[in-house]
Nucleic acid binder design. Structure first.
Length: 487
RNA sequence: GGCGCCGUACCCAAGUGGCUAAGGGAGAGGUCUGCAAAACCUCCAUUCGACGGUUCGAAUCCGCCCGGCGCCUCCA
């Protein structure tokens, strides 16, 4: 079965056919590193993490490139105003590179905590000034760009395809434009490829047109083509980057190379807080660090995957709490399977109570359909119900069957969705024999004596006191076990 | 002003022309249990913002209206 994905360029679902069989070349717009990442970034990078993980699960060799924008964009409009990184640098009285470096590491740190697998290459804009200048020169030579006073602008009217991604027409762009007309531009929709550095501008590089710095679209064209080729499979990013950023990338890249730039454009939708979009510029945002204070990584991942990547998602404490409870139910099944694998034996004439491979097929079917994680999760919950039924059925458990289920859950919930915490992925009994476990076992043994003597009041107090320190006792006919409560 | 999206049970959220409208949370009853928790079983939208229309058949297509939102400016 092929993977089908929604291509923003054609506005419909298309079968994914890689340029090179078995390989996926993907570029995702990374962050501008001038502040801590927020949960909107989390949705975006978690979505593409899931997509990349799924391609790998399906056997593709993925080359994943994500840029780090350390030049900074401009504060007010496309071509005027102050660079955000520079602004921060001035405020903090630091070198702009210190700002970029600090927040780049903050970003990497957040992503690691969210279980986002690293991209294969993280090119930085400041490390690719040469490539950007080269690309601008190609555009100048081909007549797609022009110079005015050390500034280079892209001539939108020369590129017939401008607007094909965002559905905009060049003629309509200036009507109702909120940007003041820049007299240097031939057309209001023209955009800067290179800006002359004013004397007070801190980040500056030599170029054939004097000292300056690159415009904010050119880095992605230069770096994606450098590492993935002039035509590559997938370009991803947030919906809010379609215009102007991605539209401009297409214009720059296709004008320079004369070839199609990207075959499939994927865009994730936004996170809202209290119904309105969260963004750095409005101050209406929750950082990933804040979110991680309250909720653990699997909960945040589960929450984000419980809606489709192309759907908007409203962040609220209630929704997160519901996510946590739901996820715990799924994780409990995974735990219970693990616990019972070792003691289980081989059953002669074993009749499978359900077909695990059917669940794997359904999971893949949902993921193949434009990465429909909400439906994929529904499949896992149905599987969980079947597994729990079997574990509780009182039948003797068949070890190979449990191993098949364990592997299925590891592949789907674990490898693809990244919902299984590290300690659960470890072997069933590993980490369970620590001192705390031994002590709790002693308490359980004493409590059993209390219960044998019908001293229930005291027995209940032991259970509730342990509950207060995060340990839940579970009484079963065959004895008492315990669980650590999730955060 | 232009382009576009969304409105599905108490909450979150799939489904986009045809089996009984997924799944999770919350809620109700039951099994088990000294009690509790978990798990399991059962129940929980004749209905998909409103109104028209197309169709043998629509939550799904079309029109209009109401409500919410995104992009057009840096943004994931």
């Amino acid at each position: 079965m092929p993977i089908v994905l929604y291509n923003s360029l054609t506005r419909k679902k298309e079968e994914f056919v890689p340029l090179v069989p078995g390989r996926v070349h993907i570029y995702v717009c990374g962050p501008t590193v001038y502040s801590h990442a927020h949960i909107g970034h989390a949705k975006s990078y978690l979505s593409f993490d899931m997509i990349v993980r799924y391609f790998r699960y399906r056997g593709y060799k993925v080359k994943y490139v994500q840029n780090i924008t350390d030049v900074g964009h401009l504060t007010d409009d496309a071509d005027e105003g102050e660079d955000k990184i520079l602004k921060k640098a001035r405020e903090e009285k630091l070198d702009p590179m210190e700002i970029a470096e600090y927040f780049a590491w903050s970003y990497f740190d957040d992503m690691q905590k969210l279980g986002v697998l690293r991209a294969n290459i993280f090119p930085r804009a400041t490390g690719h000034i040469v490539e950007q200048i080269d690309l601008i020169q190609r555009l100048l030579v081909k007549g797609y760009a022009y110079e005015v006073n050390g500034n280079i602008y892209y001539d939108v009217s020369r590129f017939a395809g401008y607007g094909k991604l965002s559905g905009r027409k060049v003629e309509e762009l200036d009507a109702g434009a909120r940007v003041e007309i820049n007299p240097e531009k031939r057309h209001p929709a023209d955009f800067a490829l290179w800006k002359k550095a004013e004397p007070q501008h801190l980040m500056r590089w030599n170029s054939p047109w004097g000292e300056g710095y690159p415009g904010w679209h050119i880095e992605c064209s230069a770096m994606s083509m450098k590492y993935l080729g002039e035509t590559f499979d997938i370009h991803g990013g947030g919906l809010d980057n379609i215009f102007p950023h991605h539209e401009c990338e297409i214009a720059q890249s296709e004008a320079a190379s004369g070839k199609p730039f990207v075959r499939y454009w994927l865009h994730n939708n936004m996170v809202t807080v209290n119904g309105s979009k969260m963004s750095k510029s409005t101050g209406n945002f929750i950082t990933i660090k804040d979110a991680l204070q309250q909720f653990n990584t699997p909960t945040l991942r589960y929450f984000i995957f419980s809606s489709h990547y192309r759907s908007r998602l409203d962040f609220s404490n209630e929704a997160l709490q519901a996510a946590r409870v739901g996820l715990d139910k799924l994780l409990l099944t995974i735990k219970n399977v693990k616990k019972k694998i070792d003691p289980a034996g081989q059953i002669k004439n074993f009749h499978s109570p359900f077909d695990p491979s059917g669940f794997r097929k359904q999971f893949e079917e949902m993921m193949d359909d434009d990465f429909n994680t909400p439906r994929a999760l529904a499949v896992l919950f149905e599987l969980s119900g079947e597994v729990n039924s079997y574990l509780n059925s009182g039948l003797s458990l068949h070890q190979p069957f449990l191993q098949t289920i364990d592997q299925l859950l590891r592949d789907t919930a674990g490898q693809v969705l990244g919902l299984i915490p590290e300690d659960l992925l470890a072997s069933a009994e590993a980490g369970r024999k620590g001192d705390i476990e031994k002590i709790v076992q002693v308490v359980i043994d004493i409590r059993k004596k209390l219960r044998d003597h019908k001293q229930y009041q005291l027995a209940d107090q032991v259970r509730s006191d342990l509950g207060k320190v995060g340990i839940t006792l579970v009484d079963k006919p065959e004895g008492t076990t315990f669980e650590y409560q999730s955060e």
